[in-house]
Design a protein around this nucleic acid. Structure first.
Lengths: 86, 86
DNA sequence: TATGTTTATACTATATAGCGTATATTGCAA
DNA sequence: TTGCAATATACGCTATATAGTATAAACATA
């Protein structure tokens, strides 16, 4: 399980998909993370330049985390938009 | 090469170390990323709740990227603060 | 120590994230 | 289709990130 997140759009997609996989509504995730449902909506749609702290708490609520790595090879990126491995 | 970034402090450490490894000054990295030197300083010290977009561009300038993954095991975290592998 | 470089900090201004709250819109299921 | 749940959006507000610019503080090195 390893997702790429090079922009807000990709990050939003990752969060949305994982939230759904966990069976959470936006409101449920929002409560877990201590933010508003509307904030989750904006983040998932990639339509907000979220603050890193907000993302840390949202990811933590989903039992996810950021890792920083060397930018991966073109081939990998080309295959799937924002998902490397599942 | 894989760094953990669960909070601003860890992320700042990762960026600072990698910038230095690349031989860049804060001013040089700032220019590459299109931000101010002062902004790099704040981010590296973990003393600002940076916007995700700023971080995307800074990481890209260092040829780094965010990956999102399941939170790793306690053992790994316990060994080193914010660095998993190098 | 003295000098130049690098990093930290300060000031004002602007843009916008996130809050609380509310509602519109969409989507799904009966 | 109807009704409920889920998501998207709106408004006013406060807080703060970042810009531009400048300088102070810290760090090297000759």
């Amino acid at each position: 399980m390893m997702y790429l997140a090079r922009n807000q759009q990709q990050l939003g997609n990752v969060i949305r998909r994982h939230r759904q996989k966990c069976g959470y509504t936006q409101a449920a995730l929002a409560e877990l993370a201590g933010v508003r449902q509307g904030t989750i909506s904006m983040i998932e749609s990639g339509s907000t330049d979220a603050r890193i702290d907000t993302l840390f708490t949202v990811l933590a609520a989903l039992n996810l985390e950021f890792q920083v790595a060397q930018r991966t090879q073109i081939e990998l990126e080309a295959i799937i938009d924002d998902e490397i491995l599942d």
